[in-house]
Design a protein around this nucleic acid. Structure first.
Lengths: 81, 81
DNA sequence: ATGCTTTTCCGGCCACGGCCTATGAGTATC
DNA sequence: GATACTCATAGGCCGTGGCCGGAAAAGCAT
């Protein structure tokens, strides 16, 4: 999984919310029930994370799943690098 | 993947949008670039679909990715069956 | 009833999602 | 220097995401 731009944007949003709560990757990953190394890859956009893990992440971050995804308008813009 | 309630809710929302556009599963799956049998499983909540496919599905349906996910309030409610 | 379309379910198959261990780099504090 | 954080990154492993064929089942017409 090679840093697809959409996944990078998704990971960046997840990271921003996590950092805004003052949580470490390791502590947060444990809270969600994910491996810390794997979760790090998610934030870096190297992982094509599946729906159930997205739901769990959003729940622990206390945001809507939709808030983690950039709006399609931004995704369209990103597509052209 | 055994019909997790959250995935069932996600699939139901995807199906509702697709049907509202008068598209068949097979035709829509082809448009998204997914296998018809696999996509059918997504709508039935039997598939833990990954982020990139969710983004593609939302793009072809012309909705925000967030609109496909039930709000966390509903997900919480669903959890107890 | 018979057609036609759509959907579901049945296999098998390969690639990747996801877990685990370990290492290394960066920063900060003592 | 040392210790203690955090995060990045690599490699191996296993389960499943995802593709493909076919065919049964279900809908909706005629």
């Amino acid at each position: 999984m090679s840093k697809h731009p959409h996944l990078v944007a998704l990971g960046a949003r997840i990271r921003a919310v996590r950092e805004s709560k003052g949580l470490s990757q390791e502590g947060f990953a444990a809270e969600v029930g994910l491996d810390r190394a794997y979760y790090g890859g998610v934030e870096r956009g190297e992982r094509n994370v599946a729906a159930l893990n997205l739901i769990k992440i959003a729940a622990v971050l206390d945001v809507e799943v939709g808030d983690l995804f950039p709006p399609t308008s931004e995704l369209q813009r990103i597509k052209g690098q």
